[in-house]
């Protein structure tokens, strides 16, 4: 008995280590490939020199690497990880594998607020500064999150909350459409551009701000992996184990909201990452234990977004695709394939 017991425990830990390390290696490979690819050809040795020795002999290459590619890469990694993790949280929250981070109306709330700000500010700026876009969408996502949070306290049934989230999305979209109807085409270019989603024009400033928000949130989430496991059994069982479900639910919604608001404000709504990545992580781990899922989901999301961003930049270069185009085309088939193969294998045993 003891043999079988320690064996099953070891295989779990082994599997986790293997998956985690593989993703770190894959991520590093993707990062290297990403830095080297682009319209300006820079050799591997040159890049090595630029990054580690601060070699400024080739100014153009130095600027491309330090001012364009690296911040973009860092931002894609951070936001990709954050988006995937928020997807995992929202799936845990609703106990529904199809739920994504934007079901709570966060992205549409952001879009609506951005539309309002864009139109209101029209007189002040000839072109919206990026910082205003970021702040407006962040505030918008937090507002819709707060609205959902108000309902979280009252609604006992999770599926009701899901419906409320979807309804809030619809209302926000309708208001946005209404505003767009009365706006000039040229005024909403910014909005249209934003809603496609992209990591382009990332600066170190963006990276610093998002890291400042995302990293502490992720650490906090990891520290809550124990109650999250209890919560995945269902609220009544969680409560009987001594968990304060009400507070924990608020924690889940707030941390999901912060992560996805951060993503939305810096890169626009990016579809499918939040749904697909937690699935990939879960299937590979063959477990949904949060303590293993949280780190794997984050690294996997970072890897996924770096690869998708590379594809967005390079596939039809010099034309750049929107990041959502790539993530959907890659993400949706992965989800379908995973769902079907899971049915076939029964339960992953």
């Amino acid at each position: 008995m003891m043999g079988a017991l320690s064996k099953s425990n070891n295989t779990n830990t082994m599997r986790f280590c293997m998956v985690f390390v593989s993703f770190i290696i894959l991520y590093i490979c993707a990062v290297l490939w990403n830095i080297m690819s682009g319209s300006v050809d820079i050799s591997a040795s040159e890049i090595f020199g630029i990054i580690f020795n601060g070699d400024k002999t080739n100014t153009v290459a130095y600027n491309v690497v330090w001012k364009i590619r690296l911040p973009r890469l860092m931002l894609a990694s951070l936001l990709g990880g954050a988006l995937s993790l928020s997807g995992f949280l929202i799936q845990t929250f609703f106990r529904n594998p199809i739920a994504g981070p934007f079901v709570l109306g966060i992205s549409s709330g952001a879009k609506m607020f951005l539309a309002v700000v864009t139109i209101a500010m029209n007189g002040f700026f000839s072109r919206m500064p990026l910082s205003v876009t970021v702040i407006a969408s962040f505030v918008g996502s937090l507002l819709s999150m707060l609205l959902v949070l108000l309902f979280t306290g009252r609604v006992k049934n999770m599926s009701m909350l899901l419906v409320i989230g979807i309804m809030i999305s619809y209302i926000c979209s309708a208001v946005t459409d209404l505003l767009i109807n009365f706006a000039n085409e040229s005024d909403i270019v910014n909005l249209t551009h934003w809603s496609l989603g992209s990591f382009s024009a990332a600066s170190w400033q963006d990276v610093r701000i998002s890291a400042f928000i995302i990293i502490p949130t992720v650490i906090a989430i990891f520290c809550f992996s124990k109650p999250m496991f209890a919560y995945s059994l269902g609220e009544e069982y969680a409560r009987s184990l001594g968990l304060n479900v009400k507070i924990f639910r608020i924690f889940l919604v707030v941390s999901t909201g912060i992560l996805s608001a951060c993503v939305v404000s810096f890169a626009g709504p990016i579809s499918f990452v939040g749904i697909a990545v937690p699935h990939i992580a879960r299937m590979l781990l063959r477990s949904s234990k949060p303590i293993m899922m949280i780190p794997v989901t984050f690294v996997c999301g970072a890897f996924f977004c770096v690869v998708c961003d590379l594809a967005a930049r390079m596939l039809f270069s010099p034309t750049e695709l929107s990041i959502s185009t790539v993530t959907s085309i890659i993400g949706a088939p992965i989800v379908i394939w995973l769902m079907i193969s899971r049915r076939k294998n029964g339960t992953g045993q």
Binding site: S8, Q91, R95, P97, K226, F229, A230, S232, L233, G234, E235, E236, Y237, S240, L241, G242, L243, R282, L285, R286, S287, S288, K289, T347, G348
Partner: peptide, 25 residues
């Protein structure tokens, strides 16, 4: 401890993992 009528449908959880949740406190 309790055993409720609430149906639990966790994603990818083995019976052993479910039982081990009882060690939570």
């Amino acid at each position: 401890s309790v055993m409720l009528t609430e149906r639990i449908k966790p994603e990818l959880m083995t019976c052993r993992e479910l039982v081990s949740a009882g060690r939570y406190p």
